[in-house]
Amino acid sequence: MSSSNDIEEGRIEASTQSRNDSGSSSSRVVFLTQKFIAEVIGTYFIIFAGCGSVAVNKIYGGTVTFPGICITWGLIVMVMIYAVGHISGAHFNPAVTLTFAVFRHFPWSQVPLYMFAQVLGSLLASGTLSLMLEVKPQYFFGTVPAGSNIQSLVIEIIISFLLMFVISGVATDNRAIGELAGIAVGMTIMLNVLVAGPVSGASMNPARSLGPAIIMHNYKGIWVYLVGPPIGTILGALAYNLIRFTEKPLKDLTKPASFLKTVSRK
């Protein structure tokens, strides 16, 4: 039979374990909350600055200019990557989050949280711009196909492919200079907007298109921007990892878990 001391020690151990489990759970909640807030804030300012430059350019007679819009998108993405990349991984894009998860380098359990944060940030920024600038329908700052939907779909796939290809190269390959990741990704955004902006709006990001569409009730061609970027990012990650230098055989390279290492902290 157990002595009273043994029983008391067992109670103490059980109580200590319970506190440790509770502390671990609380730490996880705090950490996820920090990531959520970082994604909301990062996406908010990307949409506020990028879409804001589009709206201001339309409202005030081209004062920003098209090259200015391209530079704005590139700069704000670069700035926010350096600002919160070490907290959330700086996804700011449901297509990027989905790609990381597909290749098993980002937990599926956090995907809904990230996507909700990104769409919420886009909605808040779009609402701010709409109220602050009193944007009329003709000054819509979202993305709509200039030509056919198929044309915009193809170009969204291509530029999203390039975006994820660069992310894979500069942010997930340990041979790259990680400190330059923000610059490389920001410049890729700028180049993509220069090339594809007049055609599709150069979204590359479902949240970027969805926020303005919901706030201003303009859903023209919205499916293009929900379908095209995820296809492009998945193909871009796949392509980079097929050419990544490794001594592994091709059959191992083509396993999803071997494809991509995310900079996001799990």
Rank of each mutant, 00 (worst) to 15 (best):
K266H: 10
L194R: 00
A202M: 03
S3Y: 02
K255P: 04
T128V: 12
V56I: 15
A171R: 03
I159G: 04
F161E: 07
P67Q: 04
T172R: 04
H86C: 07
K136T: 13
S148P: 08
I71A: 13
L133I: 11
N57F: 08
E179I: 13
G50K: 07
M78H: 08
G211S: 03
A171P: 06
S2N: 12
S18A: 15
P256T: 08
S122L: 05
L235G: 05
S200N: 04
A101F: 01
G23P: 00
L162C: 14
Q110H: 11
P229T: 01
S3A: 10
F45D: 04
V263Q: 13
A196Q: 02
E156R: 00
Y139V: 04
A239Q: 06
E247M: 08
N20L: 15
G228F: 02
G221S: 11
A207C: 00
V77A: 05
D173G: 06
V185T: 09
R265V: 10
C70N: 08
V119G: 05
D173L: 04
M132S: 14
Q118H: 07
L124Y: 03
P229Y: 00
Q118E: 14
F106E: 09
M216S: 05
A55V: 10
A184S: 15
L131V: 13
A49F: 14
G221C: 05
Q17I: 12
G236T: 01
I177R: 14
L32N: 13
L250A: 12
V135T: 11
I159L: 08
E39D: 05
H105D: 15
L238H: 01
A83N: 09
V224E: 06
T99A: 14
I46T: 05
V170C: 15
P249W: 04
A176F: 03
M204C: 01
I87H: 08
I155D: 09
L32Y: 11
F161Q: 06
N57T: 10
T188H: 01
T16N: 14
